[in-house]
Nucleic acid binder design. Sequence first.
RNA 1: GCGGAUGUGGUGAAAUUGGUAGACACGCUAGACUUAGGAUCUAGUGCCGCGAGGUGUGUGGGUUCGAGUCCCUCCAUCCGCACCA
Length: 925
Amino acid sequence: MEYNFREIEANWRAFWARNKTFAAKDHSDLPKYYVLDMFPYPSGAGLHVGHPLGYIASDIFSRYKRAQGYNVLHPMGYDSFGLPAEQYAIQTGQHPRITTKENIARYRDQLDKIGFSFDWDREVRTSSPDYYKWTQWIFKQLFNSYYDGNQDKAVAISELIAEFEANGNANVNATTDFDETFSAADWKSYSEKEKETHLQEYRLAFLADSWVNWCPALGTVLANDEIVNGKSERGNHPVEQKLMRQWSMRIKAYAERLLTGLDTVDWADSIKDIQRNWIGKSIGASVQFAADKSDKVIEVFTTRPDTIFGVSFMVLAPEHPFVNELTTDEYKTEVENYKINASLKSERDRQADVKNISGQFTGSYATHPFSGEKVQIWIGDYVLASYGTGAVMAVPCGDQRDWDFATHFGIEIINIFDGVDISEAAYTEKEGTIAHSDFLTGLPVKKAIKLAIHEIETRGIGKGKTNYRLRDAVFSRQRYWGEPFPVYYKNDIPYLVDDADLPVTLPEVDKYLPTEEGEPPLARATKEAWGENFQGDRMDYNTMPGWAGSSWYFLRYMDPNNENEFVSKEKVDYWQNVDLYIGGSEHGTGHLLYSRFWTKFLFDLGYLPFDEPFKKMINQGMILGRSSFVYRVEGTNQFVTNSKKSAFTTTPFHVDISLVENDILNIEAFKNSREEYANAEFIGEENGDYICGSEVEKMSKSKYNVQTPDELVEKYGADTLRMYEMFLGPLEQSKPWDTQGISGVHNFLRKVWRLVHDRDGNIIVAEGEPTKDALKTLHKTIKKVGDDLDRFSFNTGVSNFMICVNELTEQKCTNKSIIEQLVILLSSYAPHICEELWVKLGHEAGTVGTQLFPAFNEAHLVEANHKYPVSFNGKMRFMLELPTDLSKEDIEKEVLAHEVSLKWLEGGSPKKVIVIPGKIVNIVH
RNA sequence: GCGGAUGUGGUGAAAUUGGUAGACACGCUAGACUUAGGAUCUAGUGCCGCGAGGUGUGUGGGUUCGAGUCCCUCCAUCCGCACCA
């Protein structure tokens, strides 16, 4: 009887589902282990072979941890709010809820076929009202909190209000962009609206007019990381800058903790660096320059306060709020023109225009705070409004951009570096000695920085300051298919919906498009559609971005059905944070940063006992697709084969890879695939074949290169797919998908089957004492498989099983105890076949996964002899088998007496003999 | 420009601590068994050479008895950030 994987796998999948074999226990004396996958967005294209790569690895690891005696939490769910379902709704009118439900059903079906040990009773869906009720609740906590700099944590906004009532904001140390002061009396005199406006300056979730990336084609705001090369990541539409009233998250408050927290987690350096880079900490000072003929004081940020005597002009961003007031009548027209030009340029154009130096003098001067000299104030678009203070003190001798600017406009360049030539370029090294700089003269750079900051603070013209590149995150989207805000407005003041009235469910609308006035789709919802949720004058029309739901989903798995809390204290105390997180590195500056932010926030409020969500993370590489192309000759309906295409002007088209085999196009199938191809003609090879071109690129529906796991499961079985995906190479490496080697893995599983069965399907295992060889093979495998799992080397794990089975087959091993242990070892990789064999070996159904991982016994590996490779000058010449316990001296004697040694020494004597017992012998001659 | 990663046979790759480079698999070559099965088995397969042997882990150098592994130089590819003051 052959290995009938179809029947076996279907039976065991049903068994696991029926018996809830993989349910995690919330109360257990066992140590816990939490293995998490990044949950998928259920797209219409279904799972492709890249999705399961990480899921297979995490599943193998989960099963391994269970075999080590852990109570393992290994859940799965869906990140089910998102744009594609909404766009489908716009095109077809089908409610995104229905599309999403259908897609989830398809995903679930595909996932089930691969035999994952997920605890499906814990499934979460971010678009389910039971779930987003708590996303809304967390938003409310953020709205009701501010960041207190003294305690260095988030604190209830009620405490801030109490302080305002008692003392105004003079003594408040909080994260805010608000720099005015008000007294307690002022506060009490404010109207409710004014009070709220001020509170918005402190809340961690707040409303603000912010420049946003507006995508007209999608009718929505995009986050920076949703834009690729100035176009929307989804759909590749143009993006422009627009000022809009938006919800934002004061993530800046957590910049320092997000940075230092990275030192406490076990993540790849590359992804830590991406986050460090994104947070962009720079240490320096803020310095004030008073403008003459105006009461304005321009504040700049600099990392080089030591170069302050090199300042010969100042530059403000064109959007800087002081520009109009600083511009003299003489320069009004030029400045106005410059500002208009700058605003017309998108951020992308401004970046592309780096080489072009542009700027405009305002006619005003500022006073140098130390020398008292007048320096010109310019505007220039190389200064960004959104970084630092939107203004710089220009030091052309020490900054290349300032140098270029000064050179271009003929502004004075003061050299304050001792013995450095700056005639060709600025000197940007952070070392050397400062000159011509009053009290800083003669000091090395590092000391000068310290002294300069000290002096700036003493004179009250600025202070030491740390700046972050990280910007507050815009938190609203003008979309339908997302979490509604638990917010209503009365007299334009935002109010929160009571906890008792959550969730604010998504109302029905007639269309999923913005209104004619440009309001978001939710503005279409009638009062009746909002139902009992409707309060005040109107509800908030925005929805939350995709990262809202995914920022805390790992917590909900611990307690998915809790109606009273987002997660109970008891459960989060037991499960703690995620021990192993597997997912792609493309979320480095999005999801992974935001979930760290929310975790720290919930920790501050006392809801969580930890402040980092993911202790260890592995980033699986992307599985790339291999696309096929046909080449249409310009202006005709002729297609030319790859090798002849250079003779024509052609346009390449993606062709569905199911119509291509070994690069040869199935011409008939191609003609039938689309009406426009029905009459296509072909310029083929000599034998008539049409050879397609190919390219390795990201797997995507639009490139017609998607390989689904389903057909492979059908053809070879889930166990083969699982092992093959692992066997492809290191988990973290990106690799093109290729099914060339899958038969090798499939044959391996058949060999395993034949180890237990004869040709007729009879069980051939026998009781009794195993041979020494079999024990050696087994224990070598136990050691290697265990070690490989501990270091997430799943590909070499598969090789070890192949070597083991090859050796046992060679040894004609039928020993039951050996085979039983092998089955337990293998069950994390190939669970279906192992469950089947386990029962055939006489055990209770469904228990192979609960067996403890076999214990390694080194005694079985001990050998009486060791085969020494003998090298001459480092080149291996021959092998010599010697007793393991032979002394160094005896080994040397034996080796030198060997006839091959005599030949290589050519009668001479060795200069040196290196003997490493148990390893090698090297002879230097 | 800054930061990170990766370069090993025809292919995917292995070599965890400096110790036989290419395990394991695909592919290929030859053969066996079979009336054909995407079956199984045997032998071979880095490159050059009939052979002895030489040579070989992106380049060039260094440390070492010994380097894919450590150090320096350069090159290529990929990823992230980018006028960040």
